[in-house]
Amino acid sequence: MTLYKIRITGDPALHTRALEVLAIDDYIRELVADMFETMDAAPGVGLAATQIGAGLRIFVYSYSTDDQEVRGVAINPQLSISEFSDEELDEEADAEGCLSIPGERFPLKRANRALLMATDLDGHGYQIEAEGWLARIFQHEFDHLEGMLYADRLVKPHKRLMKKAIKENEWGVPGLSWSPGQDYLEP
């Protein structure tokens, strides 16, 4: 198994729409196993292939509560979301982070419900109706496959604060990544 470096905002792979997976072969199965290992080591609750420089429409996810554990892979996913609620943005409950913007968290309005339709590693289609945090994870990872980071969706004043954090960390340029399990960033 391979632990991949995770690309940091500014890398072109993060800002490019991922390509469809044409066949589920040994390369894809190994890539997915490595993605789970990398996500777990980070640690994270989701990881898109674009975050490790593989421009394919794949993401892995892992979410658990006291009564539910959901862990899986979404190959060539499609996502339908509910309408956004009229409730105000909650600074804590709506806070979101991203492995490609390490250490930063800002609130972002997301739909409370999502329907994920995807293919698993055996080539079987499946769907999951998700609410709350699992719906947020699906939306976040799906955005990665579209070439979008959660930072791109932030609104004032959080957008301004994110831009400041990116500038202070000298991110926003190609070639930056970090290795899960290490406390420093490597170009």
Results as ranks from 00 to 15, higher is better:
26 D>I: 01
83 E>F: 00
53 G>H: 05
81 I>G: 01
9 T>I: 15
168 E>N: 13
100 S>H: 07
72 G>H: 07
40 D>N: 12
139 Q>Y: 07
54 A>S: 12
10 G>V: 05
54 A>K: 14
134 L>M: 07
25 D>R: 03
156 K>N: 06
51 Q>N: 08
176 L>R: 13
117 M>Q: 14
81 I>C: 05
118 A>P: 10
105 R>T: 13
66 D>M: 08
31 L>Y: 08
3 L>K: 14
147 G>K: 05
98 C>R: 04
153 R>D: 10
57 R>T: 11
112 N>L: 09
15 H>P: 01
187 P>I: 07
15 H>W: 00
113 R>W: 01
12 P>D: 09
170 E>N: 14
77 P>C: 08
67 D>W: 02
78 Q>I: 00
118 A>L: 07
114 A>S: 14
185 L>V: 14
60 V>T: 14
187 P>S: 13
28 I>V: 15
179 S>I: 12
25 D>E: 10
8 I>A: 04
30 E>S: 13
53 G>M: 06
14 L>E: 08
116 L>N: 05
91 E>G: 00
30 E>P: 00
32 V>D: 12
179 S>N: 02
146 E>Y: 00
20 E>G: 00
73 V>F: 02
161 L>E: 15
34 D>H: 11
46 G>W: 04
136 R>Q: 10
129 E>D: 13
152 D>N: 12
72 G>D: 08
126 Y>A: 04
185 L>Q: 08
49 A>N: 11
70 V>H: 07
28 I>F: 06
151 A>G: 14
52 I>L: 10
46 G>Q: 07
40 D>G: 00
98 C>G: 06
30 E>I: 06
103 G>K: 08
60 V>K: 11
154 L>M: 10
162 M>V: 08
72 G>E: 10
78 Q>S: 14
147 G>D: 05
35 M>L: 13
96 E>K: 08
36 F>Y: 15
172 G>Q: 05
11 D>N: 14
7 R>A: 15
12 P>R: 04
88 E>P: 06
21 V>K: 12
90 D>T: 05
63 Y>Q: 08
163 K>M: 12
110 R>W: 03
68 Q>W: 02
27 Y>C: 04
178 W>F: 03
26 D>V: 02
90 D>R: 03
99 L>V: 12
130 A>D: 07
180 P>A: 02
6 I>Q: 04
64 S>Y: 08
137 I>V: 15
2 T>H: 06
42 A>I: 01
119 T>A: 04
184 Y>D: 03
77 P>W: 10
27 Y>S: 12
2 T>S: 13
71 R>T: 13
172 G>V: 02
24 I>K: 12
86 D>M: 04
8 I>C: 06
146 E>R: 09
88 E>G: 09
33 A>T: 09
124 H>W: 01
103 G>Q: 06
45 V>N: 06
52 I>T: 14
111 A>E: 06
75 I>T: 05
168 E>H: 07
186 E>D: 11
58 I>A: 05
64 S>R: 14
17 R>M: 10
22 L>Q: 15
108 L>I: 15
58 I>W: 09
93 A>N: 08
90 D>M: 04
89 L>A: 03
182 Q>G: 01
33 A>N: 13
167 K>N: 10
8 I>H: 03
108 L>V: 15
